[in-house]
Design a protein around this nucleic acid. Structure first.
Lengths: 226, 226
DNA sequence: CTATTATTCAAGTGATTAGTTGAATACTAA
DNA sequence: TTAGTATTCAACTAATCACTTGAATAATAG
């Protein structure tokens, strides 16, 4: 203790938080947990890594105090240990986006819809949908979609996307959205669509932001699905 | 690019920021830079690591987009590349303090003055100083001290502290303060004093907070020092 | 020019990390 | 109890990291 210095020890503790957030897989796990509580297997599928690996990452996150877990029956559910973790995620993302040129490039060129959609009002997006020029897909799970979605959007959870790929018209622009800027589902969707040669992009915000902006919302009659 | 997935690449970029903030020395450097622009040598002395090592850390920080540099004559001055970096530092610290028990322990038991001082109004601290029960030391550089300091505080920059250790009365409580909660100078001071068996602690806030709280401020006649 | 100073580069070492694999530990259902 | 499932642990490899050392760039002064 005296050999290293209290100040040094203190910074080492702070560094543990940074270390926990220094791995792409762990960050992705955190982003998923920012959406909802998940068990290990779900996370492992979402992140596309083995269960054992996921488990180890989760334990590193827990040691850094970023996530907490609760056991229910066979499964262990993990969640963020506080809202300040979301804040941290969000600021780290902001700093990265602002300062790392490559990130901006990735976002601008590959995933978001900035140049083509942001300049035109969202209302116009809606009219284009009606004209069949743009297809909006909602990649959230069905029950979230049912509770409210952008008018004209088609519900297309990630696992169903593969089956539907052939149905898309390669001339129509496809815009994917999910739960918000922290939600990573739309990234996957856009990537899959692009690989098929389709014109896909990602709406910068998710459904909550859309709703808050006072734009129209459509609900599914609960009898239709499930 | 397609082998790894755009989303994966994106998270790897975000992770670079976390990686930059995953090392105790780098964090300390960032905290110093949050106070003021510094050149490599200054930082190396402040952090207590070799110049070459400091330089390498600084380059990692720059690659992550957290610091920027400007060359003036022989020296290269580094500074934070934006206020969002301060925000990031501050939130990482907050998360660590909230979630990591060991950090709380370190802070509570070793460095801050919480239990003994926070409950009593700062005005009372001042009266105790007048009675000689408490000695307040200001560990900032002399020119900052001169521009304004807590009444009764003695200016005691870190490098002068060693020479003055013998002058302290072991019965008197010593309270150190510096530039703010992000300033790390007082940590060093408290540690040195404690090693001498003195009753030292750290004021949670620094001088700016004191001033903002509307408490009295003393200025040095510029002829006295320098 | 040469000498000096501040910083960076390059190479090397020991420690740590991400990931894999396979076994071990819980918990549940029958 | 036994069988099956979800999670974690333990051991291992390749890659990366922190730090040191000594040399290589620059910029400046004499």
């Amino acid at each position: 203790m005296s050999s290293k210095g209290v100040k040094q020890l203190l910074f080492e503790q702070f560094a543990r938080v940074g270390k926990a957030m220094s791995n792409a897989n762990r960050l992705e796990i955190l982003e998923f947990l920012a959406q909802s509580e998940c068990n290990v297997e779900e996370l492992s599928k979402l992140a596309g890594i083995t269960v054992a690996n996921t488990s180890q990452h989760l334990q590193q996150l827990r040691q850094a105090g970023l996530v907490s877990s609760r056991k229910q029956g066979l499964k262990v559910y993990y969640s963020l240990s506080g809202d300040d973790v979301i804040e941290l995620l969000s600021i780290q993302r902001k700093v990265a986006e602002r300062h790392i040129a490559e990130v901006d490039q990735l976002i601008d060129n590959f995933l978001t819809v900035k140049d083509s959609l942001e300049p035109l009002p969202r209302e116009e997006l809606l009219s284009r949908v009606k004209q069949g020029l743009v297809t909006i897909i909602d990649v959230r799970p069905a029950f979230e979609y049912d509770a409210g979605h952008v008018p004209g959007a088609i519900n297309m959870p990630l696992d169903k996307l593969d089956d539907q790929l052939a149905d898309f018209d390669s001339d129509t622009e496809i815009v994917a959205y999910c739960r918000g800027p922290h939600c990573v589902l739309a990234y996957d969707a856009v990537e899959k669509l692009r690989k098929q040669g389709l014109k896909a992009s990602r709406l910068e915000d998710g459904f909550p932001e859309w709703k808050i902006a006072g734009l129209p919302v459509e609900k599914t009659n609960s009898k239709l699905n499930s």
